[in-house]
Write a protein that binds this DNA or RNA. Structure first.
Lengths: 317, 317
DNA sequence: TCTATTTGTGAGTAATTGCCCGTGAGCGAG
DNA sequence: CTCGCTCACGGGCAATTACTCACAAATAGA
């Protein structure tokens, strides 16, 4: 037993130390003593537990200001669900806060005993939220990806959102083995006849809830960063009035899907109907404000998870 | 009303400060600056958020359940030490898991630079634990056997626990050259006057920590299997309300040592005082549940190493 | 209005934590 | 076997946090 130290054991120790520290409220010194290690090692274990996301912290209090903003947003844009988290003025992160809140909302849905079809987009925000999900056991639900999760090079998964999620919550999952954008409407037609893709399309139409990120446009937009869209195409789109995209679907400043050829090349599952499903957008930050506003105006989403300052902006418009 | 609003504001502030601290990861100084208050006030808000349980911390790791069970057991039975290891539903072993955990705990004590007297029982569980001990060098400690380790035939050692242990950790050791049960109180008196036995009795009384197995009763109980107790005697004991034994000492379902003649024939060292020593019981499995429960009720042990499912049982009672 | 009591604040200080760095064990290549 | 590399460990120290205390403001009661 002297050398039973394996990676697994290390995480076990980290979990134990983290529990003692955060849940039981012991000091690192006490933990070190009870675990028979030095304080420094205890400290390392505690921070490992944090780094490995074994410890999840959440705020369980409706902050009045956030609640109020949420209430007003709900009324103004006729939303089914709104969650406003505090802003952290000093942070430039685009996910801190809404990731936790998003995870909490996803968890709330997944706890349902009723079998649900949960649709999920992709992007950095959603990935961050998924990473906050606790381990669950949800064989009754099905998770479907709304967006192709194949990179342009045909190999790498474009943000491993649906797999991470299915892994965490143990549900059947239906990825989209496609890129976000294909070269022509005909190619899309062809690809959409694949059996896996057909299942995804079918499930997407029946989804009970969808969680999606909101993509801004611009030369540094995710679609450009990840190589799906050339810079000049992007500029052309913006000239044509594009304001943002959700799962690749481009819309203008009033939230109407663009007519031009671009949306005919989007291989994603059509967004579930806002009459039968909750379509919850998750986004914060100045760069996403225009896109978010447009999506709300056009009722492309009927649920919103954002932060205080973004909420204020959306109310002023 | 005014007062109510103030309280709400306070909790709001606490929530906000707690969020900035725990979720956004800012320091209290930064929080103080952004909220326009002194660092001390920020600290107060953060700790208020904790005290009011606005901040919920969750450990997302299989070991979390064990720690929680351990915590509850510690409170319920007023224990000095609890270690709950994950259950392996697929295994029928009565030692897997607790052997390793027991060894780890023994090792922890042996690492002490202070000279300690470590008392040790016997049985399959302890043997398995001892086998997990790493080689150590502990000349400062003394190990004493609480139970006779001579078989009925006078030859074979009844589970070679203390010798294996002393061998592994290189400490002075004091075996009990006796059977577990002798034929009469008089014989016990006689044997207890042997010099080796007297040392063991003396050391047992001064022990700092004792590790003991918990024996269940029944026709297949260890005491019967090893021939120390005839089946009919066992049945008679059970009729008289016996629930289990530790080092041969029989106790009833409330954990009180039995009055009858049986305990007058037990040649073992009396268990160390639970006021001055840690007496740590190691056991798991359905067959041992009743005995374990009784031992805990009667505070025959003040420490416990067991597995999840046994821990759950003990909590329900 | 005055006073006793509670409540909140900041200073100072003790305790705790985070981090850098030197050390030494383990290990693979030569 | 030796060298060099990696990495975990623990010591030490600076940063951060928790606690105590004294005092001020607010509040309630006479």
């Amino acid at each position: 037993m002297a050398r039973r130290a394996e990676a697994n054991n290390k995480l076990d120790d980290a979990a134990r130390a983290g529990w003692l520290y955060y849940v039981a409220g012991r000091t690192q010194d006490e933990i070190a003593t009870t675990m028979g290690i030095s304080r420094q090692s205890a400290q390392r274990l505690v921070s490992l537990a944090m780094a490995e996301r074994l410890i999840k912290v959440r705020l369980d209090h409706p902050i009045a200001a956030c609640l109020e903003l949420g209430q007003k947003l709900r009324e103004k844009y006729d939303l089914r669900h709104v969650d406003v988290v505090p802003s952290d003025p000093g942070s430039s992160s685009t996910t801190v806060g809404i990731a936790e809140a998003g995870a909490a909302e996803i968890e709330r849905w997944l706890k349902s005993a009723e079998p649900l079809i949960v649709a999920i987009g992709t992007g950095r925000t959603l990935k961050a939220a998924i990473d906050q999900l606790p381990a669950m056991d949800c064989p009754q639900h099905r998770i479907v990806s709304l967006t192709g999760n194949i990179g342009l090079d045909g190999s790498a998964a474009y943000y491993n959102v649906i797999f991470s999620m299915a892994d965490a919550v143990k549900a059947r999952h239906f990825p989209m083995p496609l890129p976000v954008l294909v070269s022509s409407p005909e190619e899309r037609e062809l690809l959409h006849n694949q059996i896996l893709v057909k299942s995804a399309l079918q499930l997407g139409a029946e989804a009970n809830v969808a969680f999606v990120g909101v993509g801004e446009l611009g030369e540094n937009a995710p679609l450009c960063e990840d190589g799906f869209l050339a810079r000049d195409e992007m500029l052309k789109l913006m000239d044509a009035g594009a304001a943002g995209e959700i799962c690749g679907w481009m819309f203008d400043h009033d939230g109407n899907l663009l007519d031009g050829s671009i949306n005919e090349r989007v291989a994603s599952v059509p967004l579930p109907s806002r009459d039968t499903a909750a379509v919850i957008g998750m986004a914060k930050g100045e760069r996403k404000q225009a896109a978010l506003l447009a999506a709300l105006k056009g009722r492309i989403i009927n649920g919103l998870i954002t932060d205080e300052s973004t909420a204020s902006f959306l109310l002023k418009k």
